[in-house]
Write a protein that binds this DNA or RNA. Structure first.
Lengths: 140, 140
DNA sequence: CTTTGTGCAAATTCTTTGCACCAAA
DNA sequence: TTTGGTGCAAAGAATTTGCACAAAG
């Protein structure tokens, strides 16, 4: 199964009609673990889809994230980042160079929240910030 | 010790000169656990400080958060929220009404991250999203 | 005096909206 | 032919910047 088909399956699984644009964006997110912004996605797809508009990218990302087909990350306060990997994992952002990594996390589901009973929890985001290996050594 | 003095201590502790505006903003954040936006802080302080400008509020919040004297939360993708409580705790936001709570968390420090050795972690944010008690019951 | 903080107005940037056109069922 | 998707241009909103004035040591 090629990556286009995998992307299509994800869309269908979440009840989203697989238009050409949506497929391209979904496929892009599943193939790039760079946690791109809407702008990055647009710039990368535009050369091969010259009619694509930024509005469509924004619309599509909002739709996909709203349906749960992708994750929308707010770890970077400037731009929303998107992640095609919807499995449980944490994120790390370097405060110096801005690089953004996935972090595998043990026990992310086992975090105990007191008084959680009253709330219906649907999402959990775990964000770490600090300095990446390269930047860490440059701190004076 | 009154709340103004407590706020002053916090500023001094983090090496920040306690101007009148900074003191007012720091004190506001320590007395309000509402996780306000810059705009809310400005609007609430303005009546008693008519010369206060929104620029100063933004400048001050950036300074305080940068020095670690307050927390800057990105749980709400629209506006940055600020928290005068810098102790370890998680946050919850209702996706329907937008209300924002603190959540006490057991084991927040014990979350195990593999491969953390290469990184210098300085901050950890744990965000839960879902539906609050009131909104939960209104879901159809 | 000299450095630092404040505040107004303007600029910047990310994102959404209004609306017309296009495509598919 | 009706519904939904796309895309352009414009609007909107949060935050930052440039610069002049005020304050504090």
């Amino acid at each position: 199964m090629n990556s286009r088909e995998i992307a299509k399956n994800r869309l269908v699984e979440f009840g989203i009609k697989p238009s050409l644009q949506r497929l391209a964006i979904m496929e892009y997110l599943m193939n790039h673990s760079t946690h791109p912004t809407a702008d990055m996605i647009f710039n990368d797809l535009f050369p091969s889809m010259p009619t694509l508009s930024k509005t469509t990218v924004y619309n599509t990302l909002r739709l996909l994230a709203g349906e749960g087909a992708i994750l929308s990350l707010s770890i970077d306060e400037k731009n929303v980042r998107y992640d095609g990997d919807i499995s449980n994992h944490a994120h790390f952002k370097c405060k110096k160079c801005g690089c953004l990594y996935d972090l595998p996390v043990e026990g992310m589901n086992s975090i105990h929240v007191e008084n959680k009973g009253n709330l219906l929890i649907t999402e959990c985001h775990l964000y770490y910030k600090g300095f990446c290996e390269r930047c860490k050594s440059e701190i004076v």
